[in-house]
Write a protein that binds this DNA or RNA. Structure first.
Lengths: 245, 245
DNA sequence: GTCTATAGCTTGATAGAC
DNA sequence: GTCTATCAAGCTATAGAC
């Protein structure tokens, strides 16, 4: 046990091989689930693509559902840690005031778009899978809620600081519109390429990143203004002064 | 042939039964495909739920893929006709100027949200199915493009009239964000209910309707302002005058 | 138009050898 | 940890009776 630290003992070799087998199944599953959803892929498709035997899925994960969950969980932690750090950084550098809405939204989206653009094929697939899950009545409520909502709550809390006079309800709606726009982007169906005659490319995630924050920030401000007209200092607010029609 | 107009001849009875069988398959397929996607549902699930035999699918539609397409096509026509009418109405009442952005967006979304809210269970399922298809790398590019993009092009053309100084590229991106927000809304996964602690309800489509147009309009204007700073009359535009940082 | 019956595959899971 | 072998169940599609 004390002998070789950096030589591959049989135990270490076995462990390495195990990790490889397991990871290769996860990689293949990630890619295929992202393309055709949970039911559109068989365990045989996955293990064949991974170059291992079907029975390994049972050994490593239990069953198909557990494999799906494992794929979804694998990258969620890394992602959320970074996003939380970024959020705290944005808060710190804005002190003692509240951060700008654009900075908050950018901290929310940048780690995702950055990885989808330059993190490699695995990350690209992962986000397409998130798009699938987020829009699925079957998996969305369970998986998104469990793995992303704790983080989302933090972001929304900071958004409320940035929009102190805005009813929280408006911020939740604004967040839902944001996440819808974001997940459709991740799906990268290429529809916008065709629609725009090549003027926009679905794969241009940098383009999305620079546009999404101003778009969403302006949208949120419009929702707030709509439900809580700005109170001008020095003038007491007049309620119910809107025209009837 | 000339005899009974309002009595059910054998031929009429058979035709009625046929339409019922066919329509019942379509209804059941619509509901189930919306819940679990194309691969998550078997023809047996569908025909059992419709109370007919599996073989009828082959007779009426050919195969599973054709059934899926038929479900998707069935309501697209009605929808697009109404939306086009609404768009023309909005244009007419704005003449000789261009319509307000909010009015254009509302004409785009209202027929959808209205039917999803009050059109019955079939329509509700249909829009959840659209959410599935729009986010699917497999079906989206084909079905959305074919059945909705011709209409979308009309809407975008009018948006360009409403934003004459905005680069078309920005309008396409703005549209993609709109459609992402809209389709996630249709999926009605209930995630926002839980996230907001009941403050917002996914099923509150009237709430979405009144918020989506101002949100998207403000977002679009922000995108335009960003790339083409407003030219104030009486002052020639200064290009590249933005601060470096 | 509708059903029965069935052909021919593929599916997820698992017992057991190595 | 990995594979071989096998299972019962479910799948789509279709030929043919009514």
């Amino acid at each position: 046990m004390a002998a070789a630290r950096n030589r591959k003992t049989p135990a270490r070799k076995a462990a390495a091989r195990a990790r490889n087998g397991r990871e290769r199944i996860l990689d293949a599953a990630e890619r295929l689930f992202a393309q055709r959803g949970f039911y559109g892929v068989s365990l045989r498709d996955i293990t064949q693509s991974a170059g291992v035997d079907v029975a390994l899925v049972g050994y490593h994960f239990g069953g198909k559902h557990e494999l799906f969950t494992a794929v979804f969980e694998r990258r969620a932690g890394v992602l959320n840690r970074e996003r939380l750090e970024l959020l705290e950084e944005v808060r710190r550098s804005a002190r003692p005031g509240a951060p700008a809405l654009e900075a908050i939204i950018s901290a929310f989206t940048r780690p995702l778009l950055e990885r989808s653009a330059r993190g490699g094929a695995g990350w690209k697939s992962y986000f397409a899978l998130v798009a699938y899950v987020d829009n699925s009545p079957e998996f969305g409520p369970q998986l998104m809620t469990r793995h992303f909502d704790p983080l989302v709550e933090r972001f929304i809390a900071v958004m409320r600081e940035a929009l102190p006079h805005c009813p929280p309800r408006e911020i939740y709606w604004g967040y839902q519109f944001l996440t819808g726009a974001l997940t459709l982007t991740f799906a990268e169906t290429g529809r916008i390429d065709q629609l725009s005659g090549g003027l926009c490319r679905a794969a241009d995630l940098d383009g999305v990143h620079e546009r999404l924050a101003p778009y969403v920030a302006a949208g949120l401000r419009a929702l707030c203004a709509r439900s809580a007209p700005a109170v001008r200092p020095g003038k007491r607010l007049e309620r119910r002064s809107q025209p009837r029609r």
